[in-house]
């Protein structure tokens, strides 16, 4: 039980990454594959933020004069993830526009039926 208590954030992150990878590998619908991509990305973001957490720390904002730098969580992964999230939405929009174009060409989103993407 204490293992669960200790690592629940890591479990959530790794679980999301694995579910996202499974969707990307096993599903045939292109929109489902893009949904898997977004899960993968969310999982990695949770993993990075959980790695930067320090027990007993507060948010890295000096909103009060008597806050100490020694009692704050690591700000570096937060800055990384902040930019990663915004890039993620742009990449998703680009991928979805490609999916819309593919649907107009082939009339289907099934990857098995679209010849060019078969593997």
């Amino acid at each position: 039980m204490s293992f669960l208590f200790e690592n629940s954030y890591y479990i959530a992150a790794v679980g999301l990454i694995l579910i996202g990878l499974y969707i990307m590998a096993a599903k045939k619908n292109l929109i489902k594959v893009i949904i898997g991509l977004s899960f993968f990305e969310t999982g990695i973001n949770v993993l990075l933020i959980a790695a930067g957490y320090i027990r007993g720390g507060s948010a890295p904002i000096f909103s009060h004069p008597d806050m100490q730098a020694g009692k704050m969580v690591d700000p570096t992964p937060q800055a990384l993830v902040l930019t990663a999230i915004v890039i993620g939405v742009a990449v998703l929009a680009l991928a979805l526009s490609l999916a819309v174009r593919l649907y107009e060409h082939h009339g289907t989103l099934n990857l098995r039926k679209i010849r060019e993407l078969k593997w």
């Binding site: 954030y9 893009i34 977004s38 969310t42 933020i49 948010a59 937060q78 902040l82 999230i85 915004v86």
Partner: peptide, 23 residues
């Protein structure tokens, strides 16, 4: 909960609103 309010704000406004709309 992990004391990252900036990231929480970005994820809530992008993941729950904009991404859904685009999908």
């Amino acid at each position: 909960l992990l004391h990252a309010p900036d990231v929480a704000m970005a994820e809530a406004s992008i993941g729950a609103a904009l991404t859904t709309a685009i999908f």
